[in-house]
Amino acid sequence: MAQAAVSTSDRLPSPPASPLAARRGASPLSLLKLAVQRREATVIIVTIGAVIYFSLRASSFYSVANVIVMVQYIAPIMVIGAGEVLMLVLAEIDLSAGQVYLTSPWFTYWFWSAGVPLGLAIAIALVLSSAIGLINGLFTVRLGVPSLIVTLGTLYAFFGLVLVKSNYTQEQTPGTTGNFGKIFGIGSWSTILWGLLLTAVIWVLLKRTRFGLHTTASGGNPLAAAEAGIPVARVKVWCFIIIAFAAGFMGILDAIRIGSMNPGNSGLDIVLSPIVAAVIGGTALTGGRATVLGTVIGAIFLGILEDGLNIIGVQASWFYFFEGVIILIAMAANVQLGQLAAKLRR
């Protein structure tokens, strides 16, 4: 690109190019940078469009009751989606996180019904959830099995375990009473507030800390990261643990909110929707590039779509059809944008 070559050859001791100056002069380079870095833009526009559409079609869309329903749907998808951002930035994926979300309340229940105090049972459940992440991570980095396959394995294993150990029977969730229950799930805004907190922690971790920079480096160019002395394998394992912990935590909150646990509860929603949220939010599958903000908006969009279709009286399963179409459109946009960026760079 001519522009870049000229600025390169300019070796006079000119004032250092400040980032501000680069932004003011909208060179092709900085515009391209904006387009590549701000892939959230697309999902924001689409989400706003969906809000306008559904609020015009159904007056109850803006009611507090409906907003609460929406945010309760959004919370776990958002948190696990933020976890998937850590995975995708490493060019890995975790299919088991949704199953960890469904399994951790059962861990709690089994220990609690064996006489362990509830608080301790929850703590044990979170440790076990994290352990699933540890298993995922170690299989991936030590045995070289692709994370897609490893986490498919743990997804099935724990789905089966829960079915067998629960005797296929639904159970009441412990801990639904009093202030404890209100704080951990039953309060209308409880799950979304916890969700925002966890998501914010993951965002800060990825964007503001040394660990986050090493995560991005490990996914962006593993060889360079290793050359610089970054323990790539350890970074990956920690990310698997973080997403599993977050999923387990949200699972316990939602089980308390709903009041019961269904062992056969699996399905597409919680297993795949977080990945959909991350992908339509603009996170690439190829590693090194991620947006937690885009994922949050992606989760919000899925929540609005699910709830909106419901409210305007469309048969519920159309949601899956639309979700599928959205995935195709979003991925096509991402890939094409990436190719455009590469072309402009030459």
Binding site: L213, H214, T216, G220, A224, E227, A228, G229, I230, G288
Partner: peptide, 21 residues
């Protein structure tokens, strides 16, 4: 091509694994 992480900025690459925190 082995030394740098393309998705990180110039200064992040200069300080890779020698970050100031």
């Amino acid at each position: 091509d082995l030394a740098l992480v393309p998705q990180l900025t110039v200064y992040e690459n200069l300080f890779l694994n020698r970050e100031i925190t």
